[in-house]
Write a protein that binds this DNA or RNA. Structure first.
Ligand SMILES: [Mn+2]
Ligand SMILES: [Mn+2]
Ligand SMILES: [Mn+2]
Ligand SMILES: [Mn+2]
Lengths: 235, 235
DNA sequence: TTTATTTATTAGACTAATCTAACTTTATTA
DNA sequence: TAATAAAGTTAGATTAGTCTAATAAATAAA
């Protein structure tokens, strides 16, 4: 049985690799992600290595073992199922669910997650548009791009957010954006990439930083249909 | 903010006083309830005293302060609300909910419990018939007796269980008993107090020990009506 | 009212998770 | 390539929570 802390280390390792696409992680990167000092992370890495949850040699890069990845994926699965429960059933807003799910993800009971999954009718995405891993730890990954990459004069559909912070999520709502919204990219400044977008007939200006944190699908599929289904890849 | 462990000490102190009716608790009693050694409990008591959560002098008895009691009651409230959720919404059986609620009761979010309470339509009792404390830490206590105290030839209604262990709860179900069932006490052996009871026309024999763990209301109120409402006392 | 038993406390040690400060290795850059 | 910077490791200390073994106080029994 893993401790709360061990689960957080494994989850964070997996999140870093999923977000960056790079399977190798460094001590400092891990430590700063977990908000601990590198010395602390180093100690824990030795323990996780002993337990065969990470592959790791002194001064080398860190990778999850099959077992470590399985555990990490399970924590992410629980996190996203709980977020969905809080959002769908208890009517929390999408900027409130993450903090509570950080605690709930560590509750130990396979049966609880199975029943919750059923209660929610087997959701595929959490409130932020992130896919929910299945019981075997498989994660469906959509082909997606950021709003910053969308060509001027074309349209796209928002499917997820990259930044999960409360402040960003509240700002997204303020701009009038949400999951599944159609976004038209009206114009973009050459100088600072400030972009004018249109949602439901209402125009807004957003920064480069903002646009890079909105995930969308576009063009190559018909955005009027729900094109999610067709753009999968099992990772 | 209290730690997981501190919350468990406070909760256990309150449970001992509520179950025994006696406001004073000893170190050994507390320790055995928590499944730790007396030395461990003693250390924690010093810490809880420093935090003004218990009143305690060396070699004296332990009592909760107002603040300590408030915290303890809140943990019990969360425990019972979660048990109700697991039972009502996720269809867990009443012998499965306690173990999971032992973990869930430590999730820190007032808003979560408020929303859960609303989602369950403000339940008054958990699946074991125990009353759920309100937000102010007030607990309604029913006048009740155990099945062992019911006179032969009279009837009563089961309202709760004393023992919450899986084995007892499963046995209660096997005997055909459940909350709100009407029980007729048919006969009782002088020698060992083995009691014959009748539920829905079916007779069973139960031991003294069993009968002492079933809480009932009877006689003085009409058991055909739901007499719960009328038998309250705010503790 | 002594003695024995139970109850409670202290001293000293251990593990998990964290830190700071010093040191070593690897990577970058002049 | 040699110097500098960045990344990673080790040593030693701290806190929370736990234990065992020894000791002290309170209670019950003889
Ligand atoms: Mn989250
Ligand atoms: Mn999420
Ligand atoms: Mn319970
Ligand atoms: Mn209960």
């Amino acid at each position: 049985m893993l401790t709360f802390t061990e689960e957080n280390y494994l989850k964070t390792l997996l999140k870093i690799t999923l977000d960056s696409g790079n399977a190798e992680v460094g001590t400092n990167e891990l430590a700063s992600s977990l908000d601990v000092k590198p010395a602390t992370a180093n100690d824990m890495l030795k323990k996780l290595k002993d337990k065969k949850l990470v592959d790791y040699e002194k001064y080398g890069k860190i990778t999850l073992t099959k077992e470590g990845r399985k555990n990490a994926m399970n924590v992410i699965r629980k996190h996203r199922i709980w977020e969905t429960f809080l959002f769908e059933k208890l009517e929390f807003s999408w900027d409130e669910v993450h903090e509570i799910a950080e605690q709930l993800e560590h509750i130990q009971s396979q049966k609880l997650i199975d029943k919750l999954d059923k209660f929610l009718d087997y959701p595929e995405f959490d409130p932020h548009g992130d896919p929910i891993p299945n019981k075997n730890g498989e994660l469906k990954v959509q082909f997606k791009k950021t709003l910053a990459e969308v060509n001027v004069g074309t349209s796209c559909k928002m499917i997820a957010v990259k930044d999960n912070s409360t402040s960003f999520l509240q700002y997204v709502v303020k701009v009038g954006l949400g999951i599944n919204n159609k976004i038209a990219v009206v114009s973009k400044q050459d100088y600072d990439a400030i972009t004018v977008i249109e949602i439901n007939g209402k125009q807004s200006s957003v920064s480069q930083k903002f646009a890079e944190n909105i995930f969308v699908v576009c063009n190559e599929c018909d955005i009027e249909k729900n094109c999610r289904e067709e753009h999968w890849k099992v990772k």
